[in-house]
């Protein structure tokens, strides 16, 4: 990464394989490079050197447009700050990735997805009027609506109270079990760490445990 102070290496000599339908949890201190690693794996960013292979595609050799088409329909995201479209309803937020991917019956699929996260009664509510837990459930519904092969989640319970966090963790693993989606999570939460198939520890850009 280029910074005002010069070139900065965030990740160094990392080798990590994630198997199909595996739930990998990445942990590490703040600034250790967890989010960067997640972004590179999801194809949101491109590594300056090395290879990132997703579904057989080397993301390092693809530009953003090509990476977006690889992500489309295959990758889902859940963010710490939810990142829902303000001014839109829960239903509309879930419909968004479906419509962006050209799915014709986005409404029905979104309805189903909201039902799965238990928010069918709030489908027409503007997201800014939902609680934090509800907003994250909408984000999860949005992520699973496209039936992604892999779901990346960055501190999905980080903005929630303990009870809501537990509900969200349950929901994510429940959906993952049902759909067989590969899960890559970045978290500090002990509960989430314990539920992963594998834990990955990262420190100062290096993988400590794999």
């Amino acid at each position: 990464m280029d910074t005002p102070e010069g070139k900065l290496d965030i990740l160094d000599d990392i080798s990590l394989d994630v198997k199909y339908q595996e739930a990998v949890v990445i942990k590490g201190a703040s600034g250790s490079g967890k989010t960067t690693l997640l972004g590179l794996m999801a194809g949101l960013d491109r590594a300056s050197r090395g290879d990132v292979i997703l579904f057989g595609h080397n993301l390092t050799q693809r530009n953003e447009e090509q990476r977006a088409s690889i992500r489309a329909g295959e990758v889902g995201f859940v963010f710490q700050s939810f990142h829902l479209v303000q001014g839109a309803t829960a239903m509309q937020n879930v419909m968004l990735p479906l419509e962006l991917g050209g799915v014709s019956d986005a409404y029905t699929l979104a309805q189903k997805s909201l039902q799965e996260v238990g928010l069918q009664s709030k489908s027409d509510t503007l997201v800014e009027y939902l609680s934090g837990g509800e907003q994250q459930r909408v984000a999860i519904a949005r992520a699973y609506a496209t039936h992604p092969r892999v779901l990346f989640a960055d501190e999905p319970t980080g903005n929630l109270d303990a009870a809501s966090g537990r509900q969200i963790a349950d929901l994510m693993f429940h959906l993952r079990d049902r759909s067989g989606t590969t899960l890559v999570l970045v978290t500090h939460e002990a509960e989430l760490l314990a539920r992963g198939d594998r834990q990955v520890m990262i420190e100062s850009g290096k993988l400590l445990t794999n």
Partner: peptide
């Protein structure tokens, strides 16, 4: 229209969003 979001409804929701 409530059955389609992209693109018209998306644009309108951006205009309505109070935070923006």
């Amino acid at each position: 229209s409530r059955r389609r979001f992209w693109l018209r409804q998306y644009l309108l929701s951006r205009l309505r969003a109070t935070s923006r």
